[in-house]
Design a binder for these strands. Structure first.
Length: 251
DNA sequence: GTTCTGACA
DNA sequence: TGTCAGCA
């Protein structure tokens, strides 16, 4: 019976592990042509085709347990349906990966920008931004975990977004950006801004003092509300420090 | 030397 | 899914 091959020969031919072939047998989807007197499994051409079929279905993400049903009863239409479902899943995985790619590109780009001249004021033109209010609190009361929990918005991946702290007299309005018009509109215009790396509350207070001082020296700027953006995801670049951007609209 | 079964992570 | 032991 020289024309039949052993399990290791089949595994070499088909690029799968011996273990995997035995596993397919355990799941009753691939049997040897016969078992030799030494109990060795022996395989012929039909088994090679059968294994190809199984591997193709595996490639289409069909679980091994379902392959059994497929091969027992599937019509061409069933296979067509199977393939289009598999295609949909792949498409959605690709969509997710593209989102992930864009998010990573955004982080890298922002980090590059952040790495450029720190510690001085610049001006940039910003488009309209729509913000949703999250929590409003007195400036002297710090945020705590319970505040955040009890007022949690229905937004996934909240800390991947830029958090906006809008300073409004003695209150702080914590907001996050949304696409559609919402509670607060930050109007298009020129904004004075500066990047900060912060390790304590004190750093932020110092920064505010510096900004006020700067604005005093530039009376023509007619500043609006001061906005502090927390770049949550950029903070992973520096342990124990948070990345912020301080912004103020100017005329 | 190769494969078998069974067990384990 | 890979790896190992113990056996034939």
């Amino acid at each position: 019976m020289k024309e039949f091959i052993t399990i290791s020969e089949l595994s070499t031919l088909m690029n799968v592990s011996v273990h995997q072939i035995r596993y397919f047998e355990e799941k009753e989807i691939l049997f040897p042509a016969y078992t030799d007197s030494n109990k060795y499994r022996m395989y012929g051409i039909p088994e090679i085709y059968q294994l190809s079929h199984i591997l193709l279905l595996r490639k289409l993400n069909v679980p091994v347990v379902e392959i059994k049903e497929c091969m027992a009863s599937f019509s061409p239409d069933d296979y067509h349906q199977l393939l289009s479902n598999s295609l949909k899943k792949v498409q959605s995985q690709m969509d997710q990966l593209i989102m992930l790619q864009q998010f990573m590109q955004k982080i890298v780009k922002e980090h590059d920008e952040f790495a450029s001249p720190e510690n001085h004021y610049q001006i940039k033109l910003m488009e309209d931004r729509h913000l949703k209010q999250w929590i409003r609190y007195e400036i002297q009361h710090n945020l705590n975990a319970r505040n955040l929990y009890e007022n949690r918005p229905k937004l996934p991946d909240l800390f991947e977004a830029d958090l906006h702290y809008i300073y409004d007299s003695n209150q702080i309005n914590l907001c996050y950006e949304v696409t559609a018009p919402s509670d607060i509109l930050l109007e298009k215009g020129n904004y004075l801004y500066k990047h900060l790396l912060v390790s304590s509350e004190q750093d932020i207070e110092d920064e505010f003092r510096q900004l006020e001082h700067y604005l005093m020296q530039h009376q023509d700027m007619e500043p609006g509300q001061i906005i502090l953006l927390e770049k949550s995801y950029l903070s992973m670049f520096n342990n124990h420090k948070l990345h912020y951007e301080i912004q103020v609209r100017i005329s």
